[in-house]
Amino acid sequence: MSTNVSATPNSTSSVKWARVKRRLSRDWQLYIFVLPGLIYYIVFHYFPLYGIQIAFKDYKAVLGINGSEWVGLEHFKTFFTSYMSWTLIKNTLLLNLYALLWSFPLPIILSLLLNRVGSAKFKKFTQTVIYVPHFVSTVVLAGMLYIFLDPTNGFVNILISALGGTPQYFMAEPQWFRTVFIGSAVWQNSGWGTIIYIAALTSVDQELYESARIDGASILKQIIYIDLPTIIPMAMMMLILNSGSIMNGNMQKTLLLQTAGNKATSNTIGVYVYTMGLTNAQFSYTAAIGLFQNVISFIMVMTVNKITKEASSISMF
């Protein structure tokens, strides 16, 4: 506290200052450790936060972020009164809400069941296999979907034909977009999602299972009364962390799976910001939409955090 340094310091503040000085001279090296990371966060995260002001300005490249003229809430008005906005918001919410409804519970169920596989070898093998899709890139996943869902020679449609159904244009029809998106996300991420729950389940005291067995509790009962309570805190944390994605998630994959045919459902806020902002250079307008998205996400995370805190005293902050 530099304010404590004066010509005639009183005794307490000078003692305090002396202590601060001693700590600084002892720990100065730690500030050098912090420096590279701090600069990274400032440049790549806090400069852009400062740049958000263009959402309230009419950004002109020659005037720059600081020099452009303020226009208040005009861009927000334009967005909310445009005929697109409702469709974009609806597409974004539905896609991410459905995605969360599948991606949140499935890893929990899978890990509870995998934990009950008796053979250690089979369990290890299964774990190894179900983590693999996580290492497939989003681009390759999208590529696989285009190949497998091809209306004439994709294996999914071959299977459908063989079973007597009609082949579907999965990638080119709006009614299939969410199914394709979420189905592939389940394939790619459910296995990987079990990893933290499996880790948590190893902490269960084995004697607990012993005594449960002696008391005649079935495996199902043990899962419900021993395993599930063990992983609930972890599950709540995941729910809090993922709740922000309802408004903000999955943009990069949506961009890859969007085709001219499925736009009616695949056009989400994120993709719209990308195309309008970077392809059509409407920087201020799309920055405003992005800000709206971020604020909603932030509110979501804080709200879910508060709810889980009230309901189960589990929270992040």
Partner: peptide, 28 residues
């Protein structure tokens, strides 16, 4: 432990929950 650790910690964690977004980041 060092003076200012709390601030550094907060600055880092905050970026998990609020970001500038694609367009402001691009312009910066």
């Amino acid at each position: 432990q060092f003076i200012g650790k709390g601030i550094v910690n907060f600055m880092i964690v905050f970026t998990m929950f609020f970001s500038g977004g694609l367009i402001p980041t691009f312009l910066v």
